[in-house]
Computed example of a mutant assay.
Amino acid sequence: MMEFFAEHGHELILKTWEHFYISLAALILGVLVAVPLGIALSRTPKFADKFISFIGILQTIPSLAILAFFIPIMGVGKLPAILALFFYSLLPILRNTYIGVRDVDKGVIEAGKGMGMSNRQSILKMELPLAMPVIMAGIRLSTVYLIGWATLAAFIGGGGLGDFIFDGLNLFQPALIVAGTIPATILALIADRSLAFLENRLTPEGLKDSYEAA
């Protein structure tokens, strides 16, 4: 093991950072697109169900096929890998945002309007905070998926821990496969726990109490 770290230690740190960067960039794009879109869809439930079902069907396309699709359009490297992963990040975040906002107690929303809140104020101060546990569940699920799928970025020259896994498979070296797999697993666990902490901080106190009681 010491010999492996002596030989590949610097490369392992670099690949872990690349893996984290690719996953984080795709996740941020997913949140920036899916959360506002989920809020908008909560206003049109009839269209929303059809649209989310359509996105779900698109995501049944194999990951490698999506990555390969981006090669003739954008070439190889990190950018097409990030965009392909962003595509896969959408569904859990979009669906949970839509469900979370849609299921906010309508009486609470009406009370806010009665206090003079605008639609924007209602979303930012009432609907999003109340839907936060459901939204964060979608973000956490998407994050874990993305960190696992990011290993495929190596297929199109995107770097990351997938380089170790592919090299290990091609060279029949199990140590390289393990070197790519274990850090990715640790990254997923750390990301999930970090987002759970963030969820706890963003969820209103009264809502946390009701979840704990349930």
Rank of each mutant, 00 (worst) to 15 (best):
I182A: 03
T60H: 06
L85W: 00
I22C: 01
A184P: 05
L79I: 11
Q121N: 07
L29A: 03
V144N: 07
A150P: 02
G138W: 08
T16E: 03
A81Q: 09
I177R: 15
G75R: 03
H10W: 11
K106T: 12
K125W: 10
P36C: 03
G75Y: 05
A25Y: 00
A154L: 11
L176P: 06
G38L: 06
A6S: 14
P174V: 01
A84T: 05
S210Q: 08
L91E: 11
A153M: 09
Q59M: 13
E212R: 12
H10F: 14
Q121M: 08
G206E: 09
W149D: 07
L94E: 02
L83I: 07
S23F: 00
E127V: 13
F87N: 14
M2Y: 13
S142N: 07
A184Q: 07
V33G: 05
V35Y: 03
S42P: 09
G114I: 04
S63H: 14
I61T: 14
R95Q: 05
Y211S: 12
S63Y: 06
I13K: 06
S63W: 05
F164P: 09
S210N: 10
K78C: 07
L128Y: 01
N200K: 12
F54M: 02
L94K: 01
L176I: 07
E18K: 10
L195M: 04
M126G: 01
L141I: 10
L94M: 08
P80M: 14
G77H: 08
G9C: 12
T97K: 10
T44Y: 11
L29R: 11
L187E: 09
